[in-house]
Design a protein around this nucleic acid. Structure first.
Length: 607
RNA sequence: GGGGGUGUAGCUCAGCGGUUUAGAGCGCCGGCCUGUCACGCCGGAGGUCGCGGGUUCAAAUCCCGUCAUCCUCGCCA
């Protein structure tokens, strides 16, 4: 079928085109039939323009239904001053239609594609089932334009710096540590399986052994784990690796790349974000101490405080016994929280208990000491502390606590008394909750930071062994190797995360390139010779042929787009996402297979 | 695996202290309309109230189960 090819995009016509003949191709965005005249907004990816039809020239305008695909010939006409539409970029003009063709008639739609406001509440499963319609919305198109531009800019940055983009296999080998693998049966020998890569980790290290020196890839990664708002079974990483580098080289590279790409996108798409000036740096220990987690949201400052030394001999039994038991009393300031009712504080306590807190103690610093109420403890300087636990502390202890917490009048101070890591888990969630409630998160900020010096291993009480914090190839810091036999938990790794707005965005490390150290680390992880050979034999062998020192990092592409578009759901930035337990309602995947396929693969259904 | 939310017309939702014919807005169909741009006005069609069971004279509504989906804890080297 032939059709008239367009001369312009729908978003292009301006007053300067008045009188010109144009041909447009696009979709009927909205139809307004007034009887004696009929207006149709025609939309393509460049924008929207108003068409004017004279019903006396065209008999069957009813065939122009919403979202039909059209080809239109017409003349650009300047609108009368009182009929201009300043809300539209093309609103100075309209197209007087001289001929048209319905290229693709549309049935009645499952949801109102042209109504952006209503679309925000349409059932997501339905949107994904009809994703090809959902993606027609300009707001969706824009996200994927941003995504494409991000990848384009990343490639440009790395290509300029002599990185080589290399594809690695999708059919690879199962590695039982880490997440659950997606498996693909091998037809020629039943019982053997490929696994889809959780990341191209081993390949990129082997490329370093191969002398590539600088590698990157926009890589699909596959992990069969429970879904979350910011997780998909298949997602995209910028995977990169460099030889002959120190940790500092990798950090500078990724910081430089991110700053240039993000600022470029902010400018190109006029995003409501402040330019990124650079990454903050924190060690793992600092991050845990100040924010209670290894992924602090630095869009706001609020830091934890530690009053353990102040209250170690205090009269409040809960605090004292916690410290006597080797625990800590730490807390956070809730700006303005002193005005919370007893019930509201109870809700906050329940919130803490959800994350394993035994309890949450608190007291407020009265905004106005005169209204502090009965039972408030009035300090020598006139400030009043209110809350049922205030009376357990000596005035000088209260003063010191207020000092340590940097409490302002009107603040509530929340305390968690617990072991260090258990307390952190509560405090970091409480911090995010307070940040949310008080509107402390600056929406214009894209707050990146490095978290450095992660521990190499962490004790897994369930299996009674040391697990790799990052992965088994991560290099221990040379100066910490002395602890490998005596105190492995003390070994820091050349390992780093990039965190953005409270989300882990990228993770990387300097890798072990010496077989002897690799062997010691495998042993630390409790892997016996046989397991090592079966799982990693190819890696060990490769490192015996002259492996260069190397390291890399892998940021998530999907999450980067989420930071820029303010989406909280990763599905919004993936063209064809999965829902539920990995279902694709549009394709109908996963699906059954033919009996013949079962037979060919030597498979049958278990009980 | 655990917790919470949701499921009623094509879409978004109301109804859910049990009752006779289950409503609204948008969309859809028909009619009218020459300046709209969320066009307007008049009329109309459209529902296995997620599914299964139970209680009851009577269930969208109460109870039990189940499925789907969203969020979340665990999990995600």
């Amino acid at each position: 079928m032939s059709f008239a090819q367009r001369t312009h995009g729908c978003g292009e016509p301006r007053a300067s085109h008045a009188g010109e003949q144009v041909i447009l191709n696009g979709w009927a965005h909205r139809v307004r039939d007034l009887g004696g005249v009929c207006f149709v907004d025609l939309r393509d990816r460049s924008g929207i323009v108003q068409l004017v039809f004279d019903p006396s020239r065209f008999q069957n305008l009813a065939e122009i239904r919403s979202e039909s695909c059209l080809s239109v010939t017409g003349t650009v006409r300047l609108r009368d001053p009182d009929t201009k539409n300043p809300a539209m970029p093309t609103g100075e003009v309209e197209i007087v239609v001289t001929g048209y063709n319905v290229l693709g008639p549309a049935k009645t739609l499952p949801f109102p594609v042209s109504d952006e406001e209503q679309m925000t509440s349409v059932n997501e499963e339905l949107r994904i089932k009809y994703r090809y319609l959902d993606l027609r919305r300009p707001a969706m198109y824009r996200k994927f334009a941003i995504r494409a531009a991000a990848i384009r800019r990343i490639r440009a940055y790395l290509d300029q710096r002599e990185f080589l983009e290399i594809e690695t296999p999708i059919f690879t080998k199962s590695t039982p540590e880490g997440a659950r693998d997606y498996l693909v049966p091998y037809r020629l020998e039943p019982g053997l399986f490929y696994a889809l890569p959780q990341s191209p980790q081993q390949y990129k290290q082997l490329l370093m052994v191969a002398g590539v020196e600088r590698y990157y890839q926009i890589a699909k990664c596959f992990r069969d784990e429970a879904q979350r708002a910011d997780r998909q079974p298949e997602f995209t990483q910028l995977d990169l690796e460099m030889s002959f580098v120190t940790q500092e080289d990798v950090l500078r590279l990724i910081e430089g790349l991110t700053v240039e790409v993000v600022n470029g996108l902010i400018e190109e798409f006029d995003l409501p974000k402040d330019r990124v000036e650079g990454f903050a740096r924190l060690t793992y220990d600092e991050s845990m101490h100040l924010y209670g987690c290894d992924k602090p949201d630095l869009r706001f400052g609020l830091q934890l405080f530690d009053i353990s030394s102040v209250v170690k001999d205090c009269g409040f039994g809960v605090f004292k016994s916690c410290i006597d038991g080797g625990g800590f009393v730490r807390g956070i300031r809730y700006p303005g929280g002193a005005s919370l009712s007893r019930k509201e504080i109870g809700i906050l306590e329940e919130f803490c208990k959800e994350f394993g807190a035994k309890g949450m103690a608190s007291f407020g610093l009265a905004q106005d000491p005169a209204d502090a109420g009965e039972g408030a403890v009035v300090l020598a300087d006139g400030r009043a502390v209110k809350g049922s636990i205030a009376k357990f502390f000596k005035p000088e202890e209260l003063v010191q606590i207020l000092e340590t917490a940097k409490a302002e009048p009107g603040d509530l101070l929340c305390f968690i008394a617990d072991a260090y890591s258990a307390g952190n888990n509560v405090l970091f969630r409480l911090r995010n909750e307070i940040g949310e409630r008080c509107g402390l998160r600056d929406q214009r900020k894209v707050a990146f930071c490095f978290v450095l010096d992660f521990p190499l291993v962490e004790w897994n009480p369930e299996s009674s062994r040391w697990d790799a914090t990052h992965h088994p190839f991560t290099a221990p810091k040379a100066e910490d190797l002395i602890y490998i036999d005596t105190d492995p938990g003390r070994i820091r790794a050349d390992c780093y995360d990039v965190v953005c707005n409270g989300t882990e965005w990228a993770s990387g490390s300097i890798r072990i390139h010496r077989p002897d150290i690799q062997e010691r680390c495998f042993k630390l992880l409790g892997l016996d010779e046989e397991t090592i050979r079966a799982r990693f034999g190819h890696m060990i062998e490769a490192f015996e042929y002259g492996a260069p020192p190397h390291g890399g990092i892998a940021p998530g592409i999907d999450r980067l787009i989420m930071f820029l578009t303010d989406d909280e759901n990763i599905r919004e930035v993936i063209a064809f996402p999965k829902i539920g337990q990995g279902m694709d309602p549009m394709m109908g995947a996963p699906s059954t297979i033919d009996p013949q396929q079962w037979a060919e693969l030597g498979l049958r259904l278990g009980e």
